[in-house]
Design a protein around this nucleic acid. Structure first.
Lengths: 201, 201
DNA sequence: CGTAAAATCACTATTTATAGGGATAGCTTT
DNA sequence: AAAGCTATCCCTATAAATAGTGATTTTACG
């Protein structure tokens, strides 16, 4: 099972509903998008600096009166692509500052293809190893992890040391980009590595 | 495990993104909402007639120029409550025709409580069969836990101390008998406390 | 045969989670 | 009014998980 690293997206949008909608739509796509949302521009530089973001989607209303912010962001994070998320009419001169524009009336496919096009423009640093597959042993560990066992229990069950389990888990996290146990659990279910019945409820 | 009948909602909204957002938000609520979406008014009477709908959520832009539709719907389906979903300013006289108004800038709680208030007005057919295992607050915690957040993050999100979160988690574990995060995640999914989309992968 | 990937194990330091003990205040129900 | 439940907060001590680095041995493949 090939696992692509998710595309990291920072979404700045005051309407929770719209943020939720976009997130939900993107989650339905085959390509994996990981969307983080914030509702204002505060601390945005801080947030951008501590992560490997691919796309910034922003409501242009938030920056239309201080285009400097936009420019300074583009300068500091030159690989970051900025997309405007518009509800209604916006001045072309403002929209022109963005790499792309998506509308709330766009279809799911339209939105996704616009984003994908932007991403494919990027130098593929990590997408060459994106056909990553969990190894057999990693799958074993994930399976047991997702059924609710601790590292120690997994180690005992597989007759290996806990260090090895931890090692495998590091690799799993790195390959899938999923850090949380809940996320990995759902992943295991979706990937049919386990069935929900086998989980310790 | 008690199961309440879901609230049937018909959503008429041309923006897929907004429809998706609202659906996603409602799915995160404890109360179960089942949302069907259509993007225009065609065949709406037909659709309404073949289902037991509780709420109709509609973009007022769709009917502002023919209020008759609205009136005729209210006449034919007298138990149906109509909610306006607004993005921007709308004439008060138009909004007054609705039982309630929600904005895309409303918080999740605001939206949910508006809908719940409308529903509770209705004669309760069979809503008292719930020996709900988890309390409301415990459900909040479970919801966030299952999306992959740590105790600390949950505390911040709910504006309570980490001790309280731990306390709730103790109770959740005791009530459900489920100790592992993966087990609780699956539990939350099965109980429709969360949807798999909302999990941080 | 050489190499690359996988699997195994190890150590340190830090952060999180769990177990178990309490406490208080605000409700609802009896 | 008393009993119960919920929500909130606090403490200690221990267990578990994670991040970062590194090393050795198998195994598969050209």
């Amino acid at each position: 099972m090939p696992v692509n690293k998710p595309i990291q997206i920072l979404l700045i949008e005051p309407s929770l509903l719209i943020a939720e909608g976009l997130t939900s739509l993107l989650n339905k796509q085959q390509m994996r998008f990981q969307v983080s949302t914030t509702d204002n521009l505060d601390n945005i530089e801080l947030q951008l600096s501590k992560g490997n973001w691919h796309l910034l989607i922003i409501n242009p209303a938030l920056i239309q009166y201080n285009p400097k912010t936009m420019q300074s962001l583009k300068n500091r994070f030159d690989k970051l692509q900025c997309i405007a998320l518009v509800y209604s009419y916006f001045d072309e001169r403002i929209l022109a500052k963005f790499d792309e524009t998506i509308s709330i009336y766009d279809t799911q496919n339209t939105i996704a293809s616009k984003l994908e096009k932007l991403i494919s423009k990027q130098p593929k640093e990590s997408s060459n190893n994106s056909q990553e597959v969990l190894s057999e042993r990693e799958t074993d560990v994930l399976k047991l992890l997702a059924t609710g066992l601790s590292n120690k229990e997994i180690a005992d069950k597989l007759h290996i040391s806990i260090h090895t389990v931890i090692s495998h888990r590091k690799n799993i996290t790195q390959k899938t980009g999923i850090k949380s146990v809940s996320g990995l659990t759902i992943y295991a279910v979706v990937q049919k590595i386990i069935s929900t019945e086998s989980i310790q409820l």
